[in-house]
């Protein structure tokens, strides 16, 4: 799935909760889950139940949730499988698996219900340095632009290349990446001029 895919989101109750509260709840949930005992335990039902209720309130579609969870499952199982090889570790594997899935679910709910500009506003209020706020804001603004530009460049390259040569594939991709950086730098110059024209100090 394309990470920048824009889903149609209906505004539900959870979307109207102040972002600061959502961030704190997510952090609290993730921290508590991570500190649960390292064996399958009845305690795991608590965060799971809470997340289930929040899920119902959020209106996050089932298909989206499953696709997203599966996307990250690779990393979870990757580290998890290693723990299977260590001694006395079936409990460890199961608990780590449950913890990770619960935490990712919490993060999915957070990102689903909270648009990034809201989070940025909270970070600004939390006194994150101005350099980082500007960088984050510009990044979230120009991410789709650069992603589209990169896709366009790949399309152009594909239409000019007749055969897929493995030897050249890396060089072509590296050239596209370099070109993308050069274009980003040029765009940054223009953005600076535009910012100045609008009275940015």
């Amino acid at each position: 799935m394309h990470p920048l895919e824009i889903e149609h989101r209906r505004i539900r109750l959870l979307h109207r909760v102040p972002p600061a509260i959502k961030l704190l709840v997510a952090l609290g949930l993730v921290t508590t889950t991570a500190m649960l005992p390292r064996r399958p335990d009845a305690l795991y039902w608590w965060p799971a139940a809470l997340l289930g209720v929040l899920w119902l309130l959020s209106g996050m579609p089932l298909l989206y949730t499953i696709r997203r969870l599966l996307l990250f499952e690779f990393f979870i199982v990757g580290i998890g499988l290693m723990s299977l090889l260590a001694p006395a570790s079936k409990d460890l594997f199961l608990s780590a698996f449950m913890k990770s899935n619960l935490c990712i679910f919490a993060m999915l709910l957070l990102t689903w219900t909270t648009p990034f500009p809201d989070i940025l506003q909270e970070l600004r209020r939390a006194r994150l340095p101005a350099v980082m706020i500007t960088t984050l804001a510009l990044m979230s603004r120009y991410l789709p632009v650069l992603a589209e530009e990169s896709a366009r460049m790949q399309r152009a390259r594909a239409s000019r290349t007749f055969s897929r040569q493995h030897r050249l594939a890396w060089r072509n991709l590296a050239n596209i990446t370099a070109q993308l950086f050069i274009r980003s730098a040029d765009r940054a110059e223009r953005i600076y001029l535009a910012m100045c024209a609008r009275g940015w100090k």
């Binding site: 960088t135 804001a137 730098a185």
Partner: peptide, 28 residues
């Protein structure tokens, strides 16, 4: 803060977007 000129400020944001976009390119 001490080394960066004001005109290079947007370059940071654009570079961050660039890194993200570059991470989406798949090298076979």
């Amino acid at each position: 803060r001490s080394c960066l000129e004001a005109r290079q400020m947007p370059l940071l944001g654009l570079s961050a977007a660039f890194v993200f976009a570059a991470q989406m390119l798949n090298f076979p």
